[in-house]
Simulated scan of single mutants.
Amino acid sequence: MIGIVVSGHINYASGMQSAVKAIAGEQEQMVFIDFVETMSTEQLEESLRQAAKDVDSNDGVLFLTDIPGGSPCNRALSIMMNTPNVEVIAGANLPMIANAAFERDGAELQELVETLLEIGTSCVQDMRKELESVMEVEPAECEDGL
């Protein structure tokens, strides 16, 4: 099973942990690391490295982080660059993280990355436009002119 490490600023990871637990139940090989104000980036990287080791069962490790270019993402990239079978997705949302729990067993790491990217982008929607498209009703044409 692919190991998952979720990380982000302040309570992003712990908030996602609560939501994932409610949706998918308690997860093995899935760790959530908050980057809090009292933590240095070096401490964050140490925590991320340890988390990756803890969840790795030789099927790969996927980091899911909040902001592209933020410290959790950058430190995960540092790990990815010198650790085989590690990938990073930045800008992860709840549908991606919850689906990672469901989709990772038996999947290849790159396959999981592609699946989660599809899910993440498809879940971002302008709900006004969605509602308007559903509410659009085309008038029925009558052949006899009535």
Rank of each mutant, 00 (worst) to 15 (best):
M1W: 07
I2A: 04
V5Y: 10
V5I: 10
V6C: 09
S7R: 08
G8W: 07
I10N: 15
N11A: 14
A13M: 08
A13I: 09
A13G: 07
G15M: 00
Q17F: 04
A19I: 14
K21S: 01
K21Q: 08
A22N: 10
A22C: 04
A22Y: 14
A22W: 12
I23K: 04
I23M: 11
A24K: 12
E26D: 09
E26P: 02
Q27M: 04
Q29L: 00
Q29H: 03
M30L: 05
V31G: 02
D34G: 04
F35V: 07
V36A: 11
V36H: 12
E37M: 13
M39S: 11
M39Q: 15
S40W: 08
S40M: 02
T41N: 10
E42Y: 11
E42V: 05
E42F: 09
Q43N: 07
E46A: 14
E46W: 13
S47F: 01
S47D: 01
Q50I: 04
A51D: 01
A51Y: 03
K53T: 10
K53Y: 11
D54W: 07
D54F: 07
D54R: 12
D56M: 04
N58A: 12
D59C: 14
G60Q: 14
V61A: 14
V61D: 09
L62M: 13
L62R: 11
L64K: 14
L64P: 13
D66L: 09
D66N: 07
G69Q: 14
G70P: 09
G70K: 07
G70F: 09
S71W: 10
S71L: 10
C73Y: 15
R75H: 03
A76P: 02
L77M: 03
M80R: 15
M81W: 08
M81P: 01
M81Y: 13
N82K: 13
N82G: 05
T83F: 09
P84S: 05
P84H: 09
N85I: 05
V86W: 13
V86K: 11
V86Q: 09
E87K: 14
V88K: 01
V88A: 00
N93T: 09
L94H: 08
P95Y: 12
P95N: 08
P95G: 04
M96P: 05
M96K: 04
M96A: 04
N99M: 08
A100L: 04
A101M: 06
F102N: 00
E103V: 05
E103W: 13
R104E: 05
D105F: 03
D105T: 03
D105R: 10
G106A: 01
G106K: 06
A107K: 13
A107S: 13
A107I: 04
Q110H: 12
V113S: 02
T115F: 12
L116Y: 14
L117P: 08
I119M: 06
G120T: 00
S122G: 13
S122D: 15
C123A: 15
Q125I: 09
Q125F: 05
D126W: 03
E132C: 01
E132D: 06
V134Y: 07
M135V: 02
M135H: 04
V137F: 06
V137P: 00
P139I: 02
A140R: 14
A140L: 15
E143Y: 07
E143V: 00
E143D: 05
G145R: 00
